[in-house]
Design a protein around this nucleic acid. Sequence first.
DNA 1: TTCATTTTTATGACTAGGTACTAATAGTAA
DNA 2: TTACTATTAGTACCTAGTCATAAAAATGAA
Lengths: 191, 191
Amino acid sequence: MKQTKQTRQMELKDTIIATPFITDEDLAERFGVSIQTIRLDRMELNIPELRERIKSVAHQEWDETVRALPIEEVIGEMVDLELDSRAISILDIKPDHVFSRNHIARGHHIFAQANSLAVAVINDELALTTKSEIRFNRQVNLGERVVAKARVLDSEYKGRTTVEVTSYVENEEVFSGIFTMFRSPEQKEQD
Amino acid sequence: MKQTKQTRQMELKDTIIATPFITDEDLAERFGVSIQTIRLDRMELNIPELRERIKSVAHQEWDETVRALPIEEVIGEMVDLELDSRAISILDIKPDHVFSRNHIARGHHIFAQANSLAVAVINDELALTTKSEIRFNRQVNLGERVVAKARVLDSEYKGRTTVEVTSYVENEEVFSGIFTMFRSPEQKEQD
DNA sequence: TTCATTTTTATGACTAGGTACTAATAGTAA
DNA sequence: TTACTATTAGTACCTAGTCATAAAAATGAA
């Protein structure tokens, strides 16, 4: 009994998601159609060839966990800095920053920009985030430019500094956070 | 000035470990030798060809139990997952994750692990962090292994789910956070 | 310097798993 | 019948390799 094209394509998609390292030949055998049909289906469904599927899986994993996230890119570009007072950085949302499915920027990149800005604005060799309360106010999409502005709230309290960071896309607030930063006394306080 | 075979082979090995998706052609150019020499070197060093390297990396991260998920987008290695209930991932702190000065892990990596785990545990196509309150309880150092455990607190509240993530280094709590996640209703709620 | 050995490069034939394109055929609907 | 979709077939080309063979170049010892 023959399947319709639609149901075959849906099952094909599921099959590739489930076992992405399957070849067209194996797929053709499994669905009882020719290799050409499988290739037509993949084209219509925009599913790349085996090697590209392998590469994309491997690459994303590699990119984010093993290789250095090129810090300049992750953090964004610093355009203004006055130590212990304020700082501004911009981050252009690139394909690496978004979920593949929906092209929405992943939260940790927005956080990374803000957090590293908070670290950078502190006039100290060692600055670490100890606490933060953050809010993602709106989705950020591929291609958008995020401008993060940091403002030091209380600088002089010993060992702790509070930094407020607000991020905007074209004057629309997309993220805000209060970061409590630990700054180094002479020796380590906690271990 | 020419390199010896030995030093070239050692550097070759390092290069392939550092950037495993490099082709023989690129390697040949980088080392100023022919492709054939690179292939001889790989044979002597028992380093498989590009496709096999890609496949092995891709395979390591692949787990049949979590295949419905964009596992490649989880930071750290997922070792346990029960959708809408709990999830565990581990992240080994490598040189890329730390401040060069003091070898302390940068906060956004710890956050990224926790945040992506919170996203992954949600049984939904679209899950976004809208709010979070986090705390870095102790520094994490180079070489340490961070185990993040996510627990879904209230799953059924419409459009919002709260996830608690706690990260440990050898049973010592290093990070904790409450993530409020947005999950897709039938149509978009905000834009 | 000459010879032997190691190292490197070149060449040709083959492979897997595709892309891109053209063409032919089978089945269905108006 | 004509029009259209779905499927299959076949060709040329591509990449990133493989293997085998041979020749050239560099190196070390007599």
